[in-house]
Nucleic acid binder design. Structure first.
Length: 559
RNA sequence: GGCAGCGUAGCUCAGGGGUAGAGCAGGGGACUCAUAAGCCCUUGGUCGUGGGUUCAAAUCCCUCCGCUGCCA
């Protein structure tokens, strides 16, 4: 029976390009999961969008002398381009800048206000007497009390990474004019997170499918006690507050961004002309998954669920398979230090599937994982090319050259032939089970071990020897191994969609590799093969050296 | 500073009270269809340190060291 699967993916912040850490953390696993479920015949809705509001955007824009909207538009189109090139198959990738989003956010805001979950209060905040405005944390700069870095921000010191309050800073100043801010009370609206403590706790206790890191982070937060949070800010850039007296304030970005999952679903439904269709994915027995990095866990297991409970009538997250972090050559990715492999840059020079392979095989599922160019080249050359790519190539060139470019007519399978095909079928089942539980690394390993088994089979059958003495037996072996390869094509579809499509065509199939669904498609005898081409190419050591040098050159400019 | 997690073969990691595992790298071999790829065999580790519980600890508990994250 077909299931309905909603997949929400973290909303990238539109003030800078994406790097490989974002992909490994959320976008790739979400896409693998979505493609897998579509292959299974399930109905999938995968959405996300650019997060366009908040102080970091206005600061970046001011630094570049641009309007926030201009900056945001640039990164949004860059994101779209990256999804297309990397094969991240969103059903909709929108933005928080749509009128639809505002409408949905205001609806939730006003409903929570009506129900008493949002209330007025005041808090002491830095105020610049010269600019005559309250300053968001990031608009206060001063000397870090810990490391004495002279330009620490009011929320965090970029030098030593300590979290700060504006009042911690030595000699604080307004980021815009430099005037020393005063502390004044400002009226804001608060979300009564504490009202949901009991409901959240009993709900979280039932979520045995969650990963240990997600469970422990959530429990720790619940145990510390939930505090109400201010959900408005003294900013101009952002969503308006639909409450009289708050015309000059804006909704705090984390509060409205998570609502994007719902507003994007409604926008998607509109776009296909069935405006109520979003309900299929938010109500009833649809399952809801959120793919995010570990820094986002509590927003998806505490805050967003609290908002959903408060609003009522919508499904809570079924699973939040948060990944740990990807490091780069052993160090944290850092935007401010330019220590990163930027995705647009990467995709200009490399194909998507080798990256998808590496990040699947070394996904930071249970602990942090490291990306290095040397490891990328090694896994590409020694695993992807040598084990899988070469298997496909050696079989296809042999079949194409010896059997008139067709899948040969085969005889009866013997025990060995059958054991290979049984193994292929079993791998299809194993990967199915692993992917349904979001075990990506293990699933990829299972697929690769089928490729190894196929190579082993070939050594045993040695069709290159038998072609002269036992042409029929040889044809049968080639038929069996073509079956195994065809099965691999399907299994790897979620991970390596581009090369699976290429292999689909090379095997002589028409249409799309996904058309057959999650099933074992054996190429029929007589099917015309395409002239073989390698699926992947090797990366030589010079490329590794060149890329590593490029990385170090980038960071050198910032030290 | 508080709280979690991690530290296992040269590298990347899995396992998790009962004679140490995988892939890759290293060494040897047979083969040649294939992107000098693939296949077989094989060398590597007192499982971070010091204690404790147990008949038995890499696995449980505590100390310490190192790394990472969350919170202040």
């Amino acid at each position: 029976m077909a299931e309905r699967i909603f997949i929400g993916v973290a909303w990238p912040y539109a003030n800078g390009p994406l790097h490989l850490g974002h992909i490994a953390g959320a976008y790739l696993p979400a896409d693998i999961f979505a493609r897998y479920h579509r292959l299974k015949g399930n109905e999938v809705l995968m959405v996300s969008g650019s997060d366009q509001h908040g102080a970091p955007i206005t600061i970046s824009a001011e630094r570049e002398g641009k309007e926030p909207q201009e900056l945001v538009n640039r990164y949004h189109s860059q994101f779209l381009d990256c999804w297309q090139k990397l094969g991240i198959s969103f059903d909709l990738f929108t933005t928080t800048g749509t009128s639809n989003h505002t409408r949905v956010v205001h609806d939730i805001f006003l409903t929570l206000l009506d129900k008493g979950y949002i209330y007025k209060g005041s808090m002491p905040l830095p105020y610049c007497p010269n600019c005559r405005r309250f300053l968001p944390d990031r608009y206060v700069e001063g000397t870090c009390p810990y490391c004495h870095f002279p330009r620490a921000r009011g929320d965090q010191c970029e030098e030593c990474n300590k979290l700060l309050n504006p009042s911690d800073l030595i000699d604080p100043g307004c980021l815009i004019c430099g005037t020393r801010p005063q502390i004044m009370d400002s009226e804001h609206l608060f979300f009564s997170l504490s009202s949901f403590a009991e409901q959240l706790r009993s709900w979280a206790e039932e979520q045995t499918q969650w990963r240990p890191n997600v469970l422990s982070m959530t429990n720790r937060y619940l145990n510390e006690g939930l505090r109400d949070r201010a959900i408005t800010r003294d900013l101009e850039w952002g969503l308006t507050v639909p409450v009289p007296g708050f015309e000059k304030k804006r909704i705090y970005v984390w509060f409205e961004a998570v609502i994007g999952y719902l507003s994007a679903s409604k926008e998607w439904a509109q776009s296909i002309g069935q405006s109520e269709k979003w309900r299929d994915f938010w109500q009833g027995d649809a399952k809801t998954y959120y793919f995010i990095g570990k820094d986002n866990i509590i927003f998806h297991t505490i805050i967003w669920p609290a908002m959903l409970i408060g609003y009522g009538g919508l499904n809570l997250p079924h699973d939040v398979p948060a990944n740990e972090f990807l490091t780069l050559e052993g160090r944290q990715f850092s935007k401010s230090r330019n220590w990163a492999v930027w995705l647009p840059d990467f995709l200009e020079r490399y194909d998507p599937d080798p990256l998808r392979y590496l990040l699947s095989a070394a996904m930071p599922e249970t602990s942090d994982a490291d990306f290095s160019w040397r490891e990328f080249a090694r896994r590409n050359n020694d695993e992807l090319v040598a084990t899988y790519g070469n298997l496909v190539h050696r079989v296809l060139t042999f079949a194409f050259g010896n059997f008139d470019g067709c899948v040969p007519a085969r005889g009866e399978f013997d025990a060995r032939d059958n054991s290979l095909l049984v193994r292929a079928e079993a791998t299809l089942g194993l990967v199915d089970e692993l992917l349904s539980r979001c075990r990506f690394r293990e699933a990829m390993r299972a697929a690769m071990s089928l490729a190894q088994e196929s190579n082993r089979y070939l050594e045993e059958k040695a069709p290159w020897k038998r072609i002269g003495e036992d042409r029929d037996g040889c044809a049968t072996s080639i038929g069996a191994v073509l079956g195994a390869i065809s099965c691999l094509k399907t299994i790897l579809c979620p991970f390596l969609p581009f090369s699976s499509q290429k292999l689909h065509r090379l095997l002589g199939f028409a249409g799309r590799a996904e058309d057959g669904g999650w099933s074992f498609q054996v190429p029929p005898s007589g099917q015309k093969l395409m002239p073989p081409q390698p699926l992947f190419t090797k990366l030589d050591d010079d490329r590794v050296a060149e890329e590593t040098l490029r990385l170090r050159a980038n960071i050198a400019g910032y030290l």
